[in-house]
């Protein structure tokens, strides 16, 4: 299994697309930090509020970038890695050659899924680490106390909460990743898998914004996406965060299960 995992890692880390995706994860926080330093925003509420608070501590730059990037770019990156995982290889015609090695299909699929998930995690961590480094250089890594924003934490607390938020956001990509991965096993066109992942996110966001949809909203994969804000502007981890984690577990189990079930029975014609 490790040999297979290693070969999949090598394939991905030598791929220009991977460099571009991870490069964006580094570039955007860097540019944003430079912009914040050059042109500090005035404090305001809402999503803009985190950016406005960022000059108080470099740690908040990382937090603001995590929030900003989790809204679409991270989703795009996760969908790209997962949607392309099997379909990309099938599109090149190389999948059939992978499957005539003495390797069971579930093991190949496990290796591909693990590498996709690992890359999505790396992208998330890179955003935060870049935000911390750039923010630290620009504004220092101090604690903050901003009474009007109900934010008062030491540097240690901020860092710890940032770590939790990073893994929460990374795990929140599980639904997009598993749906993209499932569709990737059905098609030879990588865009199909990528589109499915992104499509799920967009549809979920739209439906979640319509209150008339009712309780169905609670099972939409993006419903608890921002639940981690409570780590910074509230008492700490709460039930919504737990629901968010469990909801993603459900999506991951269902769609990864479907992917494995389907792929084991699939005729490889590509």
């Amino acid at each position: 299994m490790m040999a297979l995992f290693r070969t999949e890692v090598v394939k991905q880390i030598r791929r220009p697309r991977t460099y571009v995706a991870l490069g964006i994860a580094v570039l955007i926080p860097t540019i944003a930090t430079i912009a914040l330093k050059a042109n500090p925003p005035t404090p305001q509420g809402g999503d803009e509020g985190l950016f406005a608070l960022a000059p108080n501590s470099g740690i908040l730059v990382a937090v603001a970038m995590l929030r900003f990037m989790s809204r679409f770019l991270l989703v795009l990156i996760a969908a790209l890695f997962a949607g392309d995982a099997v379909a990309g290889e099938a599109g090149w015609g190389n999948l059939r050659y992978m499957l005539v090695r003495p390797v069971r299909r579930p093991r190949l699929l496990s290796a591909k899924l693990s590498v996709s998930a690992l890359l999505a995690l790396i992208a998330t961590v890179l955003i935060v680490v870049t935000g911390l480094v750039a923010g630290g250089i620009a504004f220092g890594l101090s604690g903050v106390s901003v009474p009007f924003a109900a934010l008062s934490q030491s540097a240690g607390q901020l860092l710890w909460n940032t770590v939790i938020a990073t893994f929460y956001v990374a795990w929140s990509l599980a639904a997009v990743l598993s749906v993209g991965f499932f569709v990737s096993t059905l098609t030879d066109v990588p865009a199909g898998g990528v589109g499915a992942g992104i499509g799920l996110y967009i549809v979920s966001q739209i439906l979640d914004s319509i209150s008339s949809v009712g309780s169905i909203r609670y099972i939409l994969p993006t419903h608890y996406l921002d639940a981690w804000n409570i780590l910074f502007f509230g008492p700490g981890p709460n039930a919504d965060m737990l629901r968010g984690v469990l909801l993603q577990v459900g999506y991951a189990v269902v769609f990864c299960g479907l992917a494995f079930w389907r792929f084991q029975r699939k005729d490889i014609l590509s």
Partner: peptide
């Protein structure tokens, strides 16, 4: 068919090693 952005030698090696 091969992984297009890898060299011929790398393709052979990765394919072989994927079998353990």
């Amino acid at each position: 068919a091969f992984v297009p952005y890898l060299s011929g030698a790398r393709n052979l090696r990765l394919w072989w090693e994927s079998g353990g």
